[in-house]
């Protein structure tokens, strides 16, 4: 077998592997989409796979969600939106300033240790925090408020942002900033007018990743919110345990509504996100 033929075989095998894994990832998503169009009867006797062929799709789950129970669904949805956006913004501002500072200033030669210190947060198990947070936010009277979640999620995202953004800023040439300063700009102006725009790809990546993290978080939300401030993941699980019956179709519709925005955002910004995810590790 010649080299070219060998290469062809390798390519074919590669596509087979990729196709297979894509299918594994696709099937559950397909299933949740069709389930959201099923009626109770389509799920009580046997599994059904193809709309119009082995079951007649209906819109009742979507009507349930967007017409019958819209108000009831809207509160947790808005909570999720507000908490995710505000916490990510706060974390972005604070975290990227610190990342910038660690890239540009010398802290007695301990810059790397400081960054490592930030990252050590990742080692701490979430379980260690929830107990303390429950008591801490009780004393502050902040249980069941969005503010509590915003505080926790911001602090959770900051270390990652510091880590990635520091590397990012280090990759930008320092000379532009210095000449701007010689021209009389102050440091804050340099950060926001020069460094930040140049670092936009990195900022987008870490912002979206923080956003997704906050949007999907469950354990802390479960511990700190009760009714007023519950977020989408919490809302979802509360629907399941109602009577022991699961309304699969309604749950599927809710899942899709919670998944589509972040998946769409993530996939649209794929280049940045992959960068953000793999960035730190690549530096070893």
């Amino acid at each position: 077998m010649g080299l070219a033929a060998q290469k062809r075989v390798r390519t074919i095998i590669s596509y087979c592997i990729l196709g297979f894994w894509s299918f594994i990832l696709l099937f559950p998503m397909y299933w949740v989409v069709i389930t959201s169009f099923k009626n109770a009867i389509d799920m009580s006797i046997k599994a059904t796979y193809m709309p119009f062929i082995d079951f007649q799709p209906g819109l009742h789950a979507w009507r349930y969600l967007f017409v019958d129970r819209l108000t009831w669904f809207l509160d947790p949805f808005m909570n999720s939106v507000l908490v995710a956006f505000i916490s990510s913004t706060v974390a972005l501002v604070i975290g990227s300033s610190a990342g910038y500072a660690l890239a540009r200033f010398d802290y007695g030669g301990r810059n790397n240790s400081i960054v490592l210190g930030f990252m050590s947060q990742r080692m701490f198990p979430g379980a260690l925090f929830i107990l303390a947070f429950l008591v801490m936010f009780r004393e502050l009277g902040l249980l069941d408020t969005r503010l509590a979640l915003i505080i926790v999620y911001s602090s959770g995202a900051i270390p990652f942002i510091v880590w990635v953004m520091r590397d990012f800023f280090e990759g930008l040439p320092v000379e532009i900033e210095e000449s701007a300063m010689i021209d009389g700009a102050n440091r804050l102006g340099v950060l926001f007018r020069i460094a930040m725009p140049l670092a936009a790809p990195g900022l987008v990546a870490v912002f979206v990743l923080s956003l997704i993290g906050a949007w999907n978080e469950y354990l802390v939300a479960l511990t700190l919110t009760f009714r007023e401030a519950i977020t989408i993941p919490l809302f979802m699980t509360m629907q399941v345990s109602q009577t022991g019956y699961t309304e699969w179709w309604n749950m599927s519709a809710i899942s899709l509504v919670s998944v589509i925005p972040v998946v769409a955002a993530g996939m649209a910004l794929e280049k940045y996100i992959t960068g953000g995810l793999t960035f730190g590790a690549l530096k070893g």
Partner: peptide
Amino acid sequence: FLRMVGGAAGAVALAACAAPAAPAADG
């Protein structure tokens, strides 16, 4: 003890959220 802890954390909470707290404060 909890008060002490809470007070310390509260200071940070306020510092961190002074700007965006407006839409979130819901008491």
